[in-house]
Design a protein around this nucleic acid. Structure first.
Lengths: 123, 123
DNA sequence: TATTATAGTTACTAAAAAGATACTATTGGG
DNA sequence: CCCAATAGTATCTTTTTAGTAACTATAATA
């Protein structure tokens, strides 16, 4: 991830922290439950192990999620939101709701882009 | 931007549309005013012309912003939120507020990352 | 006739993010 | 002695994103 230190607009701070490819999804899943690494992976089938670890590490670094490793074998590691993460809940809920309401509009637009790209590739 | 068509979690829809490097900022600026291309550029000093055009085009494509070009010379083009864009306002406000509250925590974390990266570069 | 203002576009390059794949550690159980 | 289960790492390649710099159009103005 590109690292931006100086922020001119407060929303950049938040987006910086939420805009990893899977971070929003991870945060949403952790909003109402603690999950183990493997459980998160099951909930996000398309994610690779590497990406899941990486996104979780960054969220941890930004103090949005807690990581608790139990000293067992096979290992057990549980992820949950920190207080900072909890503060994001209302915003996450709204983003989720907007997505629900606009999925059709957005999906169509993306589809058109995709078709356009394929066309270009032909030329 | 990578184009994702199938969404498994509704928040992905929203983040897909908001997570361009400057999209959140642009949307925030347009939340309470119509702005010309050049005005946007002035408000976001670090953005290049290319990026501003590109981000605006994508926002337009996703139907979050309106683009109105007046037939004058020199040209005048005005950008504003569409109804869909307006629907995002409450969420944007919350993201902004969270950023305001957590800027210190996040900035420190980013700073540490940066220092870590510099260290690595030395090895 | 040259210059300015505005809103772009184009081509090329560099940097960052993501993907694929193989590998690690540990211990209980068969 | 080998395998399964869990939560990762490590390395390399590809894709995506962003940055740089030069170029365009047009009419009004000096």
């Amino acid at each position: 991830m590109e690292i931006r230190i100086k922020y001119n607009h407060p929303i950049e701070v938040t987006l910086d922290v939420v805009c990893g490819k899977w971070k929003g999804v991870i945060l949403c899943l952790l909003m109402d439950q603690t999950l183990r690494f493997g459980e998160l992976k099951k909930e996000i089938p398309a994610i690779t192990q590497k990406m899941l670890t990486q996104q979780l590490r960054e969220l941890e670094e930004d103090q949005l999620v807690n990581r608790v490793a139990y000293n067992e074998i096979p290992p057990r590691v549980e992820y949950s939101l920190t207080a900072y993460g909890e503060d994001l809940k209302p915003a996450l809920e709204m983003l989720k709701e907007w997505g629900n309401n606009h999925i059709n509009v957005v999906a169509e637009s993306k589809l058109e882009q995709k078709l356009g790209d394929l066309q270009e590739a032909d030329d």
